[in-house]
């Protein structure tokens, strides 16, 4: 019998996996998810998720590796479509419009719901082209000076402008890891999305670069709704207003960040955030 199982049995906490504790609804929801399930072939990777994402809020998804938080995140902009054998069921709606049906066009959806990935993945093109690509394919700029304006603005908002303004023509892959990740954020916000999904954006970065990105997330919150997956409890505590704890494909607990971290309702949440497993 593992320590985990032992302690779970001893304490009079919520122990059952199946239901979510805490307030999963939000007063002014941007995204509403109800009974979302994700399957990889036969594997039931994410089970019966109910959660709201509030407007102009940062919601952090935490949990041990393989608990399905990234998989759930990728439901929100339909990136799971690219994985063969992956099936998403349930209702996901954005501003009241369902986005999970096969009839939904993913191109405008992904223009509205941007994504920053775990590993910085700038295009093997110049810094300028990296940021300009999104506006160009969506036709957001009517003339070249417009486009330059969008690029500058996006790089400024990503806090990268001062560092790269003299070398926009140089390859984006030549930047440092932290700069690359901010370039990816600039690329995402250049399309002017409404929601930004971040999949462990700081896991490949050093503490200084991480601090910059966290500060950036806090600034971006005024304009965008942000869903961030993170392995760092401190990061979740610092940047988010709400926190959701995933475990083995279940959403165990969701609530105000302060409340989740100071007074967790679920046994597993408490153990995870105090570092007893995970």
């Amino acid at each position: 019998m593992t320590t985990l199982e032992k302690s779970t049995m001893e304490k009079p906490f919520h122990r059952e996996h199946r239901s979510t504790v805490g307030t999963f609804t939000s007063d002014n929801p941007r995204i509403v998810c109800r009974s979302v399930d994700v399957y990889y072939g036969e594997k039931h990777a994410v089970q019966n998720i109910n959660i709201d994402v509030g407007r102009h809020q940062v919601i952090a998804l935490i949990g041990p590796s393989g608990c399905g938080k990234s998989t759930f995140l990728r439901c929100l902009n339909r990136m799971n479509d690219t994985i063969p054998d992956c099936r998403v069921t349930g209702d996901i709606s954005m501003d009241g419009i369902a986005i999970n049906g096969p009839e939904v066009d993913v191109v405008p959806l992904r223009a509205q719901v941007g994504m920053v990935f775990q590993k910085p993945n700038p295009f093997p093109k110049s810094i300028f082209e990296n940021v300009a690509y999104g506006p160009r394919i969506h036709g957001l700029a009517t003339n070249p000076s417009d486009l330059e304006g969008i690029v500058e603005n996006s790089l400024r908002r990503a806090g990268l402008w001062e560092e790269v303004k003299d070398r926009l023509a140089q390859p984006g892959t030549g930047l440092s890891g932290g700069q690359q990740q901010r370039l990816c954020i600039a690329r995402t916000i250049a399309v002017n999305p409404e929601i930004i999904l971040m999949d462990e954006p700081c896991s490949a970065l050093d503490p200084i670069a991480t601090a910059k990105i966290e500060q950036l997330i806090d600034e971006l919150r005024t304009l965008y709704t942000i869903v961030i997956v993170t392995h760092s409890m401190q990061q979740a505590a610092r940047v988010s207003q709400r926190t959701a704890f995933f475990h083995l494909g279940h959403l165990n607990e969701v609530g105000e960040t302060a409340q989740v971290f100071t007074n967790p309702q679920h046994q597993l949440t408490e153990e995870y955030i105090t570092g007893r497993f995970g």
Binding site: V107, R110, A190
Partner: peptide, 20 residues
């Protein structure tokens, strides 16, 4: 990662293939 990056900002599959 290049494919994901392109799809993630809303490129259609054809744009992803031919641009990146």
């Amino acid at each position: 990662s290049v494919r994901e990056a392109a799809l993630g900002i809303g490129a259609s599959p054809v744009q992803m293939v031919f641009d990146h």
